[in-house]
Amino acid sequence: MKGGMARLILVLGAICFASGFGLAMVYEITKEPIAYQKKLEVIRSLAAVLPGLEIDPDSQYRDLAGKDGDTVRVFRSEDGDGVVGVAFQVIAPDGYSGNIYIMMGVLPDGTLGGIEILSHAETPGLGAPITEERWKGIFKGRSLENTDLRVKKDGGDIDQMTGATISPRAVTGAVKKGLEWFRDNRDNILSAEEASS
């Protein structure tokens, strides 16, 4: 049986080796495209919230302290005169189920360039229309000054959709908080130099 045992080990080892080798090769081949896809995803969301502005997500960002002690990565689009738009992610914790991740683009004057829902687990059909363009579009050009950032049901200016109030309300609330954070930290966010944070 000794020989039998050796054969088992040998065969299994060979299969493992072959499999490992094959996988390593596939990994090498797909490494680049995967990284590119991930970057593309960020670029797409940035383009959606800051239309017409260009940002290289690998270099044009700054990590700042958020409201609750967390770190917010702020992507910044700059031209020769300084920052022309920033984008950062906010989280709406009070949706139907789980967090809603939102990318929001803000222009230096505090108006919204747009918002993009990155991921959510809302009930399809009920909460999911927040991902529809016609709803997200409402936010473009809004600011704390020109808009009461609450859903209409709560007396604000943002149209909720039929039946579903919770998801739009959650997103609206998160966007409002994001804008407030931007207002309170505007100088830091827009400053040319790296802040000592």
């Binding site: 009930t123 059909g125 009920l126 039929t162 039946g163 579903a164």
Partner: peptide, 8 residues
């Protein structure tokens, strides 16, 4: 299935 209809 029809949360909107069922909760109006």
């Amino acid at each position: 299935s029809f949360p909107v209809v069922m909760t109006s």
